[in-house]
Write a protein that binds this DNA or RNA. Structure first.
Lengths: 222, 222
DNA sequence: AATATTTTTTAGATTTGTCTAAAATTTATT
DNA sequence: AATAAATTTTAGACAAATCTAAAAAATATT
């Protein structure tokens, strides 16, 4: 049960694409993997041979149980490294993806377990995405677009829907990060902007685009 | 200037073999890299093309300046990760080589620099081998075989010439580790065993083989 | 339903790093 | 110095992962 970097990258991409669509198409995979459709077909045959996917020609792919299990292990490694890079090595969240893409392919049982322990068994990565535990189990928490939440209710930032430096820059400037408590004061019909209050700071206005990218949960305590 | 894992492994092996012999032979490389001599020849041609080595057919290889620089970067990464694994993730020194072999090929400038900083810019790895700094510079310290040191002089363990679990097990049992202060009390001509005193512990006897593997410096203060 | 368009697959080639078997060269031995 | 032995290289092949161009199948359009 040892897979190449290429195989792992395909499995991971199928996993992520599956979140939005039931079955994943050849073209879609080719696009996210930055490769040619013909190459995707070749690899899908290989993954079928290795019994990681359901695949019939012209009918798209889907992970089977083994594929899902593998995908969760890869995602686990990726997100643990992201957490490490941000919290231990003080990277910005926008700098970690590329490195984590490399680190995630190092398959050494003890390395990942010790890393997990060292980090204190974190359940969410720096973008608010859940880190699968050793068994592949994902912690759940609400991740609702701030843009469509009720007004005057206390909300808490749980995740971001984008990992770009530009978003990080903007949110940092507004003192918004994971865990920040927010209340919507009013919205503007003109462009969908929101006026919001952040904990004990003075209120600010954010664009509709930002509000759609910031994901929140209904805050427990008032 | 981006090299494959295979290329890096060859460069690293040439570097290590160069320490003992001036030029490195095809067969010797094949042996340490667990591959066929013919494969080595193929790769040496490639490394020559990439201007990392001096190589003439039938005459052995040698790193040139660029090759040495690259080798030191790889060794730096390897030893920093070993330090991390032992000191941060609490691996035994005998468990780290294999993992570090994988981690060393992740080439991300900032990752290595931040890791170095996080670790406190260590100058020696868990086996006492020097960690090249960012410029590739190696710290020097004596590493003399305990077996051939003067008696009654205070010595300090600086390195080990072997990374096996068996040696680690033995040294741990005797409370010998990097930094341990030792004085030779007497030697036995029968088999070259040594009676030694370790700091304030009661004296013990170690075999000639162990004494040859433990490397020391003359201790500064009495 | 027939045709056009898009998507996907097949066929055949390429690159990297490896292999085996045979040939070339160097080194050691008589 | 000639021959034997060891080392190293060349020639040709192979597996993994990719590519391009053409063919096949599915989907959309008239």
């Amino acid at each position: 049960m040892n897979y190449s970097v290429a195989e792992e990258n395909y499995i991971k991409s199928v996993y992520h694409l599956q979140q939005n669509a039931d079955t994943v198409t050849t073209n879609h995979l080719a696009e996210v993997l930055q490769t040619q459709p013909a190459s995707v077909t070749d690899m899908l045959k290989k993954l079928l041979d290795k019994k990681l996917v359901h695949y019939e020609r012209y009918k798209g792919v889907k992970l089977n149980a083994a594929g899902k299990k593998l995908a969760l292990q890869i995602v686990r490694r990726h997100r643990l490294w992201e957490y490490f890079l941000v919290n231990t090595l003080h990277f910005g969240w926008d700098e970690v993806h590329e490195v984590a893409e490399q680190l995630e392919h190092i398959t050494h049982q003890k390395l990942i377990e010790q890393l997990d322990q060292f980090l204190g068994y974190p359940r969410f990565d720096p973008h608010g995405d859940p880190i699968p535990d050793k068994q592949g189990k994902l912690a759940y928490q609400q991740r609702l677009p701030l843009s469509s939440q009720p007004h005057h209710t206390w909300l808490e930032v749980t995740a971001v829907g984008d990992e770009s430096p530009e978003l990080l820059d903007m949110l940092t400037h507004h003192h918004i990060h994971l865990g920040t408590r927010i209340r919507i004061l009013r919205s503007f019909n003109f462009d969908g902007s929101l006026e919001i209050a952040i904990s004990d700071r003075k209120s600010i206005t954010i664009s509709k685009t930002v509000a759609e990218t910031v994901l929140v949960k209904i805050s427990d305590h008032e």
